[in-house]
Design a protein around this nucleic acid. Structure first.
Lengths: 340, 340
DNA sequence: CCTTCCATTGGAACCGCTTCCAGTCGACCA
DNA sequence: TGGTCGACTGGAAGCGGTTCCAATGGAAGG
């Protein structure tokens, strides 16, 4: 058994052991330049014996690249960002890049995360998920020429992968209209965080447009805002269902909220889809299990595509600043039906 | 508006701008040593103007610590690791440490990840989730004196945070027995990956023990193995329900699999809990929604606790190599009932 | 008024790796 | 056989920080 050195070997140790210069060791490591076969063997042997691993930190400093991609996202709140990260992880698996995760839950964490990242030394590139970076940081990012791709967010001057939330809102609402519904409620997010992308807001707009296009007057008491939480959505849905003239259908801005609506209906003995149609948005895993009709957005794919764009930029591709819009699908399951 | 330098400022630039030496700038940055108030002001001013941010890479090289904690986990397969990571993220939020995420889906990725991590330069500490690191790497880790905590896994010589899977298996099975069930089936994971922790295996043991303790003979046709996938569990459950003498209760080694069982029952018109009781394991988010009876394990807490232990070790605490066992709870919901 | 002391400061070495720049040396060509 | 060429090789200069160590100079003590 070979001895384990108490301290990890450095390139100089390998060089000494092999009786060559450090430059030669580096050449062997990086397969650059020409090294005599015999010399190479000696070096490889020394590396094996000493269990040498080059220090990525030293490499990063010398090469001015870290082989790390930062992923900034609001991690803890929703199921969907996770799914996007999965896409990112998958796309990056085959690349030499590692992933640094930056959760930006609270606003101050956000500050800190963007601050850290703008530090152009830490990461080679950035993926920002469902968050809108402050102008200040975008400026700094481009000044430091560190590529950045936005996923599920938009900012002038930064490439992004998004979905058409307005179109999605229309899609869902139009479907309910086509089924014959006229009393259609909407449950969306409360605009909270200025840096947080408000996809719900756009879906509201789509909802309104679809109603307008069908000449169905919008009722203010049918449009509610809560949080992403199922619990709150449930409360809101209960209120809606207790209205003198309750809606015959509810469009929830997310599946999670739609689940809250289903719970409310169940609790109040309202049959879905008999008395109430429910449509969600996202198509998270649980949706298929529950049989929820929803607007599917390619979460996983968005992460993957964003990562691909970033890799391209990192590879020196021109990377045109453009917005890539991923397609949406209406997934009809069991929670929607024509009204009675 | 102040000019944005095309290239990020280095400490030497700040020193020059402030008319001081770099050592002084470093002192100001790290609030170490004594610096005259006036000098400090000049330096801070220069930092502000030049938008200087110290290079974390250079700091890492110089200080021999990266302020990065590596988190290794099988990311894409299950819902539970995600929940654990949330705990990790939360615990690390207040610390100065960043998180590097290493997904080790395939076996070769696994190889690579552990290899990379054993490179003692990349991370200051390691959290390994639901994975058993090879002895070789454990040896290397301790040789490099980089602290490591296992979450949901066990290895001699490494501290870990686990649950009592055997006890959990007993807990679930005993509950079913106490309800009066005698025909109790078990659906677990297929032992696939040697590095992958087989919590399912231990739960099987608990299942067997509980049966033995109640003098209920174990039937081989009631013990099945599939994967974590809902789909496969569903198929298996269908087979079980079509047996000449179908089980009156099913204990699934995970909630995801339990959902598959519920689907199977629904598909075959088998009433739950009327004709069939189902109990899962984990208590993932969806479980409460579905009303699934399950054994709750503190997923989030495991991540948090593991991260805390690692932080302690990083802070120089002795960090005794011990196994911390988190408590399990039986969460009774609507999918279990005494047999008819 | 002369030491001694200490706050303050800058220079230089070092962290570990990459790579430019010469330098060595045998082979091949005229 | 002298010269040129090219394959190999090693030294040294960064990359951008931290910090040891020596130097400076004014204040306080004798």
């Amino acid at each position: 058994m070979e001895a384990v050195p108490s301290t990890p070997a450095r390139i100089a140790d390998v060089a000494a052991h092999a009786g060559v210069g450090i430059a030669t060791v580096s050449r062997v490591l990086n397969e650059r330049g020409s090294v005599a076969a015999a010399t190479r063997e000696r070096v490889l042997e020394a590396i094996r014996i000493l269990e040498y691993r080059p220090s990525s930190v030293a490499q990063a400093l010398s090469l001015k690249r870290t082989l790390v991609i930062g992923v900034v996202l609001p991690f803890l709140t929703e199921a969907s960002p996770i799914e996007r990260v999965r896409g990112v992880v998958t796309a990056l698996a085959a690349s030499p890049y590692d992933i640094a995760l930056y959760d930006v839950e609270s606003a101050d964490r956000q500050q800190r995360a963007f601050r850290l990242l703008a530090d152009a030394h830490r990461t080679d590139g950035l993926l920002v998920v469902s968050l809108i970076p402050p102008d200040e940081e975008v400026r700094r990012l481009s000044a430091g020429s560190i590529p950045c791709v936005l996923i599920d967010a938009h900012h002038d001057g930064l490439p992004s992968v998004v979905i058409d939330d307005v179109g999605g809102g229309e899609l869902a609402t139009r479907y309910l209209l086509e089924l014959g519904h006229r009393r259609i409620a909407f449950i969306g997010d409360k605009p909270a965080d200025p840096f947080r992308r408000q996809s719900s807001r756009d879906r509201t707009i789509g909802y309104e447009r679809a109603l307008a296009a069908a000449s169905v007057p919008m009722r203010r008491d049918y449009v509610r805002e809560g949080t992403q939480s199922r619990h709150l959505a449930r409360n809101i849905a209960e209120e809606l269902l207790r209205l003198p003239e309750p809606p015959s259908a509810v469009f929830a801005a997310s599946d999670v909220q739609a689940l809250g609506v289903l719970e409310a209906a169940r609790g109040l003995g309202v049959d879905v889809p008999g008395q109430l149609s429910v449509i969600g948005f996202d198509d998270i895993e649980i949706a298929s299990y529950v049989g929820l009709t929803t607007v599917r957005q390619p979460l996983f794919e968005s992460g993957r595509r964003g990562a691909e764009l970033l890799l391209q930029a990192l590879a020196g591709q021109p990377a045109p600043v453009h917005v890539e819009t991923l397609p949406l699908d209406l997934v009809v399951r069991g929670t929607t039906r024509p009204p009675r």
